[in-house]
Design a protein around this nucleic acid. Structure first.
Length: 488
RNA sequence: GGCCCCUUGGUCAAGCGGUUAAGACACCGCCCUUUCACGGCGGUAACGGGGGUUCGAGUCCCCCAGGGGUCACCA
């Protein structure tokens, strides 16, 4: 295929959510695979709801995901402007053309009148269709009403019979009876076009070859096709992607928790992981692979392998995937990922970067997300304020606990080299002398040093923590046990 | 409600007339191990229902059911 041009055309009325992100991703993959252009267009003709910070959020989100565009509002391009609010003249021209050729007409019916008709129809359980009353208005009448300052919308004349069929690349031919449509509005009374009209004019004007968008637009497509034909525009190819659903199978919304790209970003997910996960939501090759590099995705992307059924997203799998990417990360990048929070918590400063790094190395492979990693790092930087409840019962509860910890304290204070290997040797030797298992020393010590029952290998942990912290924490644990006497 | 789309394990999904119906996440065992992870091995679990077509149907057709989308001077 040549001259592939695709677009992502969000309306800036909210954050970039994962459904939109996936649509953008598929468009991007398609463009990159074919050496085509990926265009960003902002559909901001709803002036009441459009917000500038939403545009910024979307742009930032796409950038963070690494989905770069070739033409767009920020970088321009040969077929701009790329913001609908700046394309008023273009729409007006085509609107006028339709009016002149008699394919569209002014309608002076008020929203209130129409609303009333709709309600009546609903009462009588009839389907409502606009009755085309204003189609019969002669030029004189139109002029009169306009001069009287009556607001008007513009409607397209829709053929009452026949079918409009959408040739969808994913779903095949989908046909709609024209009788279903009324003469729908293509320009609002403020002069701005409605979505369906603006999209057609823009997709044509920007020479879009393939419209890849969410399934919710499928039922809009025949209306758009009608506009293409009225305007004599060449039609692009269409492909409608199935929706991403929340775990309860309903449409994604805020109540489902994290659904915006920004939220994933602020929770410390890796963009590569999100992209990989999103790519596999609705697309798959027959290949038995879950981790895909961008290059591989671009290479193998194919519309034929896009699934028709909606996909329920699964945070667990995203987390797993994030873990896969986190393990692959080099230590510098990992530290960079942690840095903002770590500094904010006072865990990382100019003096302790070596210590910080050692701690990260130690815990890194037991966390799937940044937040888990932060949690795993806690006791390296914060004093132990409380001990895991179950751990206390199990390891501090036994009557030997204080004896054991005293023994450990003795080792820790007297050992020559404070290294993992030496510590382990000393522990095992002492265990043997005491005729207990090494584990009987290890578990209480772990709890004393970290407050937790799950940590990296104890001896490595001790080495990184250092003698001083080990001693003070052991002493603190001994005090704790003493204070709990009788209750344990 | 009308119209449109969809329907393989809990989730993502392979399958495109003949398979013991892949694989991944999750879950459950076992191994490794000082704990937790990682890793390794194994396991539980699916073709929505009913009719056809065919020697043979998850795969093709029809009906039903369920889910989703859409019916604005929103996009």
């Amino acid at each position: 295929m040549s001259n592939i041009r695709v677009r992502f055309a969000p309306s800036p009325t909210g954050a970039l959510h994962i459904g939109g992100a996936r649509t953008a991703l598929f468009n991007w993959l398609f463009a990159r695979q074919h050496g085509g252009k990926f265009i960003l267009r902002i559909e901001d003709t709803d002036f009441r709801r459009s917000r500038e910070d939403s545009t910024r959020g979307i742009v930032d989100g796409l950038s963070w995901l690494g989905l770069d565009w070739d033409e767009g509002p920020d970088i321009g391009g040969p077929l701009g402007p790329y913001r609908q609010s700046e394309r008023g003249d273009i729409y007006s021209r085509y609107l006028q053309e339709l009016l002149d050729s008699g394919r569209a007409y002014y309608c002076f019916c008020t929203p209130e009148e129409l609303q009333k008709e709709r309600e009546e129809a609903a009462q009588e359980k009839r389907d409502y269709k606009y009755g085309s009353r204003c189609k019969a208005l002669g030029p004189e009448e139109v002029k009169e009403m306009q001069q009287a300052g009556k607001p008007a919308v513009i409607r397209l004349k829709v053929p009452g019979e026949g079918y409009t069929v959408v040739h969808d690349l994913i779903r095949g031919d989908v046909s709609f009876a024209n009788a279903l449509f009324d003469d729908f509005i293509i320009a609002k009374s403020d002069g701005w076009p409605t979505y369906n009209f603006a999209v057609v004019v823009d997709d044509f004007g920007m020479q879009i070859s393939h419209v890849l968008r969410a399934e919710e637009h499928l039922s809009n497509t025949p209306r758009q096709l009608l506009i293409y034909r009225a305007l004599g525009f060449k039609e692009p190819s269409f492909a409608h992607l199935s929706m991403i659903l929340a775990p309860d199978r309903s449409k994604l919304s805020k109540r489902h928790g994290a659904i915006s790209v920004q939220e994933f970003q602020s929770q410390g997910y890796l963009p590569e992981a999100l992209v990989n996960y999103l790519a596999l939501l609705g697309w798959s090759t027959g290949r038995d692979v879950d981790i895909w590099s961008r290059e591989e995705m671009i290479q193998e992307f194919s519309l034929e392998h896009i699934s028709k059924s909606p996909a329920v997203y699964d945070l667990e799998k995203l987390a797993w995937m994030n873990g896969q990417y986190m393990t692959q990360l080099d230590i510098e990048s990992l530290i960079a990922l942690l840095e903002p929070q770590a500094q904010q918590r006072g865990w990382l400063n100019e003096e302790n970067s070596v210590f910080f790094r050692q701690a990260v190395e130690l815990v890194r492979n037991r966390a799937k997300t940044r937040d888990e990693l932060l949690y795993a790092l806690g006791y390296f930087f914060e004093e132990v304020e409380q001990y895991d409840e179950k751990g206390v019962k199990k390891h501090f509860g036994q009557h030997k606990a204080s004896t054991v910890l005293s023994e450990v304290l003795e080792i820790v204070s007297s050992i020559g080299s404070f290294s993992a290997a030496e510590l382990e040797e000393a522990f095992r030797k002492r265990a043997q002398e005491l005729e207990v298992k090494a584990a009987d020393l290890i578990h209480p010590t772990r709890l004393a040093l970290s407050g937790r029952t799950a940590t990296p290998g104890l001896f490595e942990l001790m080495e990184v923590l250092g003698r001083e912290k080990c001693i003070s924490r052991l002493e603190k644990a001994l005090e704790f046990i003493a204070s709990q006497k009788g209750q344990l």
